[in-house]
Simulated assay, not measured.
Amino acid sequence: MAEPIFPATWEIPTDYIFRKYRVGLKGSDFKVFDAYGNLLYLIQCRSFSSSPRRVVTLLDAADSPLITAVHLDEGWQGFKGYSWEPNDLLFTVQKLAYSTFKTELEVLVTSENLRDEKQKFILKGSPFQRSCTIYMGDSIVAQANPLYKLKKFIYSRNKFRLTLYPGNDHPLVLAMLVTFFGGN
């Protein structure tokens, strides 16, 4: 019997395709597909007219809430499910640099054990161009880019691709990416 071509432990990057499917006055929603066109996640983006608050919820394909990110005065905070309780806090986001063409954010992931060091991610790119690279230390965790088509000079900002490298928490990285794009 021949050995398998690819080892069972060999992990490859995962591609996700984001497509905007509903745009309204209070926000827009995205569907997230895998490379084969299977729906994996939904992203609901909402803003409230009574406050400058924006709320983004990452749901699985069965509409179960995974992570809710809330934009407050001091920046974004991510929570488990639909919760906004301090004990359900997953991450906080701080701006390091911000402009139309270059943005840099620092994401600190909270730890269950207060003695542990917090994980720190750096997100760099351009929200306007739908491009972002996510770093943890010196390694690249994920990269987002617009979907380009050959012989097309103008591309849609309503669709983009995220390539996520092995060994990372997919919903957490998706939630961080949505905060980078400002919930838009």
Score class of each variant (00 low, 15 high):
Lys149Met: 10
Arg115His: 02
Tyr135Ser: 04
Arg130Val: 01
Pro166Cys: 05
Ala142Met: 03
Phe121Leu: 13
Gly137Glu: 10
Ser111Asp: 08
Ala144Gly: 08
Thr110Phe: 08
Glu112Cys: 00
Lys149Tyr: 07
Tyr135Val: 04
Leu162Cys: 08
Glu112Ala: 09
Gly137Phe: 11
Leu123Tyr: 05
Ala144Glu: 05
Glu106Cys: 11
Ser156Ile: 04
Ala144Ser: 15
Ser156Cys: 11
Pro127Met: 03
Arg161His: 06
Pro146Ala: 09
Gln119Val: 05
Gln119Glu: 12
Gln119His: 09
Tyr155Ile: 10
Lys149Arg: 02
Arg130Trp: 03
Ser156Gly: 09
Phe160Lys: 07
Phe121Lys: 05
Ser111Gly: 08
Phe160Cys: 04
Arg161Trp: 03
Glu106Ala: 11
Lys149Ser: 14
Gly167Asn: 05
Ser111His: 11
Ser156Trp: 09
Leu123Pro: 02
Ile134Met: 06
Lys118Gln: 15
Gln129Asp: 14
Leu123Cys: 13
Ile154Pro: 09
Thr110Asp: 10
Gln119Pro: 00
Ile154Gln: 11
Val107Lys: 05
Thr110Ser: 11
Phe153Glu: 08
Asp169Val: 01
Ser139Cys: 04
Leu150Glu: 12
Gln119Arg: 14
Glu106Pro: 01
Leu150Ser: 09
Pro166Trp: 05
Lys120Phe: 01
Lys151Asp: 13
Asp116Met: 01
Tyr135Asn: 09
Phe160Ser: 01
Phe153Thr: 09
Ser139Asp: 12
Ser111Thr: 15
Glu112Gln: 02
Val107Gln: 07
Cys132Phe: 06
Val109Pro: 00
Leu114Tyr: 03
Arg130Gln: 04
Leu164Tyr: 07
Ile122Glu: 08
Asn168Thr: 08
Lys120Gly: 01
Lys151Ala: 11
Phe128Gly: 01
Ala144Asp: 02
Gln119Lys: 14
Pro127His: 07
Lys159Ile: 15
Val141Ala: 06
Lys149Cys: 00
Leu123Asn: 08
Ile134Asp: 04
Leu108Met: 06
Asp169Ile: 00
Gly167Val: 09
Asn168Met: 05
Ser126Arg: 13
Ser126Pro: 07
Leu114Lys: 05
Arg161Leu: 14
Val141Arg: 05
Gln143Ala: 12
Leu105Tyr: 15
Asp169Arg: 03
Lys152Asp: 05
Asn168Val: 10
Thr110Ala: 13
Leu164Asn: 02
Asp116Pro: 02
Lys118Asn: 11
Tyr148Ile: 14
Asn113Val: 00
Val107Gly: 03
Asn158Gln: 15
Arg157Gln: 00
Gln143Lys: 15
Ile154Phe: 13
Pro127Gln: 06
Glu117Asn: 15
Asn158Cys: 10
Arg157Glu: 03
Ile134Pro: 01
Val109Asn: 01
Tyr155Cys: 06
Gly167Cys: 08
Leu164Asp: 05
Gly125Val: 07
Ser131Asp: 03
Gly167Ser: 07
Val141Thr: 12
